[in-house]
């Protein structure tokens, strides 16, 4: 049987699969459930300074290409989140599964403040979500849109906490390498690529957009080729480990992502069809693929497609 273990920023994960932010990362029990089902790492739902209820329904639709969502960053606020993360961390640590805490903020200064509060829960890493496509009407253009704004947030969070940080990038930029390079120079330890792609679904019979927010983020199978391209470009040019995320729903998908240069593999929308059991299935799948193709370790596949 192939060995799925991976080393990442001094952590040792039993497999490369990380629950992506915003998928079931809302409570200790749900994060524990995903770990029990086989996730190698867990990312919590993005949290900001204040509580947010998020957008009104419809907020998510699954269609043949995947999922489109505009949840709108629902979260309990950093104060409450710290308690929730502490409880989660304790349960996950018992299973040797690291906890990545995702944060967002509307301003550079607030990114630092939220990071400092969340750091009290001692997550294994802070993931900095600068790329949510669904709050533009309130927050303006995401910080992921340019190298300079992405760098500013990274610098602020780097100054604020000693924990490892990963910056989560958006796919809809003209030059993702330039942005990845800028955050690397400001001291990011890793890059998460990618967040969802801004998109719209229209119901012709209703003559209206399906989501109440009108637009949302596209994820799942339709996003995979976009994510693979982003990861491959970053991995070829920037020397940081990557949490490759977008459309991974089978072991072969995961192999593709690792061959594009990812160290870890984020899994989000795939949870839709079979629930958290998706982790077990994708893991067994990948192990089968590796046995068949004679890769004994994850490392042997990494970057193979971009050499």
């Amino acid at each position: 049987m192939a060995n799925l273990e991976v080393d990442f920023l001094g952590m040792h994960l039993k497999n490369p699969f990380v629950l992506a932010s915003g998928i079931l990362g809302t409570s200790p029990s749900l994060m524990e459930r995903c770990a029990l089902e086989g996730a190698g790492g867990i990312t919590s739902k993005s949290c900001g300074a204040e509580p947010r209820v998020g957008h009104a329904n419809p907020v998510a639709i699954a269609w043949e290409g995947g999922v489109i969502n505009a949840i709108g960053l629902t979260n309990p606020g950093a104060g409450e989140e710290v308690d929730l993360l502490r409880k989660t961390k304790k349960r996950l640590a018992a299973m040797h599964v690291p906890l990545f805490a995702s944060i967002f903020a509307p301003t550079v200064t607030q990114f630092g403040e939220v990071a400092r509060i969340i750091a009290e829960a001692e997550p294994d890493l802070i993931e900095v979500n600068i790329s949510c496509p669904n709050v533009g009407s309130e927050f303006g253009t995401p910080f992921s849109a340019s190298a300079s704004s992405a760098a500013e947030v990274t610098r602020e969070v780097r100054r604020s906490v000693g924990l490892p940080i990963s910056i989560k990038l958006a796919p809809n930029v003209p030059n993702i390498v330039e942005i990845a390079r800028a955050v690397a120079e400001e001291g990011a330890d890793a890059i998460t690529a990618v967040n969802t792609m801004p998109a719209m679904l229209i119901d012709a019979f209703a003559a209206a957009p399906v989501l109440k927010n009108r637009t949302g983020g596209l994820s799942g199978p339709a996003l995979k080729p976009v994510a693979l391209r982003c990861v491959a470009e970053i991995a070829s040019r920037v020397k940081l480990p990557i949490i490759g995320t977008g459309g991974i729903s089978s072991g072969v998908d995961a192999a593709e992502m690792i061959m594009a240069g990812a160290t870890l593999v984020g899994v989000g929308s795939a949870v839709w069809r079979d629930g958290p059991a998706a982790f077990g299935r994708i893991g067994r799948d990948l192990s089968g693929f590796m046995d068949q193709e004679r890769y004994n370790r994850i490392k042997a596949m990494r970057g193979k497609a971009i050499q």
Binding site: L24, T26, V59, A60, V67, I71, W272
Partner: peptide, 12 residues
């Protein structure tokens, strides 16, 4: 129920 597809965690 928000997403209705087992992704958002709202209905736990």
């Amino acid at each position: 129920i928000r997403c209705g597809v087992g992704l958002c965690g709202s209905c736990e």
